[in-house]
Amino acid sequence: MKKVSFAEFGGPEVLHLIDTEKPRTGPGRIRVAVRAAGVNPVDWRVREGQVLSAHPTQLPAGVGIDAAGVVDEVGEGVDDVKVGDHVFGEGASTYAEFAVLSAWARMPEGLTFAEAAGYPSVVETALRVIREVGVRTGQTLLVSGASGGVGSAVLQIARVRGIKVIGTAGAANQDYLRSLGALATTYGDGWVERVRQLGRVDAALDLAGSGVIRELVELTGDAQRVISIADLGAPDLGVRFSGVAGSVPDALAEAADLISRGELHIPVEKSYTLAEAAAAHADSQAGHTRGRRVIVV
């Protein structure tokens, strides 16, 4: 089978498409014929060797944790899916023709494989950071870098829960944020004052790692009311960096429910082939995403 791999840490150029054996399932695991894989910032952070403490990596290594596909092999103890079922979930080395998943859910009706591959990690992350930052119904959440995959999920989940959201993004994504129910403003010079004009901020999320931690603490008045998923230096300023996943099966079940009820939709901004994985990573690192980037197999 074809699989994207890297033998050294570095830039997108270290990614190569190789031929290798299909992975085998173990107990409590399934193998899928991958139809699409989500492209996440953690993928290139792993490739660069940035997050070895959270993601120990033995070289050569595969890439990717999110996938949607057709169940191809079922491990011992798995009784909720069968060969031929369409699922989405998380696993390892998902930029490949076949991958083993450790958590999954059946794909909601009407969802394409490309769309489904964009949900697992971002919805788990969105649910986790909303919980960790402690924002409640009736309060206001500021989301810095709100137009990407996690931001898109946060805005919609917050809306369902009755949480007001102020989102920052580039000028081209202002209408997109408003379509998801947020009060929108641009980042750049004067952004803190523009946020203040939109209302009081009870909690804040840094999703882009754009060096705004001090300002988020200033706006909330409390470093404990700020969470970052993108700035590795956040703890130096008293802000928690959230990088450890919670219950992925629970997150997938909630995602499937929200999608089925029409309360969550994350668009696919751009798709790539396996051979274009390096370009996908370069684009992801450049930011300014609206929704999700995925690799279609």
Rank of each mutant, 00 (worst) to 15 (best):
V42F: 11
P56T: 11
A105R: 07
G77V: 03
A114Y: 04
R106T: 10
P108D: 05
P108Q: 05
E73P: 04
H86R: 08
G84E: 03
A96H: 12
D79P: 05
F113L: 01
L111E: 08
H55D: 12
T112F: 02
P56R: 06
D80I: 00
D80P: 09
G91E: 06
R47H: 07
V46K: 14
V42P: 07
W44Q: 06
A117Y: 00
G118V: 02
V51G: 11
A105S: 15
V63P: 02
E90Q: 15
I65P: 04
L101G: 03
V63T: 13
A99P: 06
R47P: 03
L52I: 12
S93L: 06
P60R: 03
A116P: 05
A67F: 08
V63H: 03
V83Q: 04
V70K: 00
F113P: 00
V100R: 07
V46S: 04
M107F: 11
A67M: 08
G49Q: 15
Y119V: 11
A96N: 10
P60A: 07
A99S: 13
L101Q: 04
A103W: 13
G62F: 12
A61P: 13
T94Q: 11
E73C: 02
G89C: 07
E76T: 09
L52M: 13
V87G: 00
E73G: 03
Q58P: 09
D66C: 10
L59E: 14
E115C: 04
E90G: 11
G62D: 09
G77P: 06
A117S: 06
V87M: 01
E109Y: 08
P56A: 07
E73I: 01
D80E: 13
F88W: 13
G64H: 10
V78I: 13
D85F: 00
R47G: 07
G62E: 11
G91M: 09
E97W: 05
A103D: 14
E90M: 15
A54D: 15
F88M: 13
L111D: 02
D72Q: 01
V83W: 00
F88S: 06
G110I: 13
P108S: 08
E90K: 15
G110V: 12
V74E: 07
V78H: 10
L111T: 02
A68R: 01
L52S: 14
A116W: 06
A105M: 08
H86S: 01
R106E: 14
H86W: 05
H86Y: 03
P56I: 09
Y119M: 12
V71N: 02
F113S: 00
W104E: 08
F113G: 00
F98E: 04
L101Y: 08
W44R: 09
P108G: 06
A116R: 01
I65W: 14
D80W: 05
G49Y: 14
H86E: 10
E76M: 07
A99Q: 07
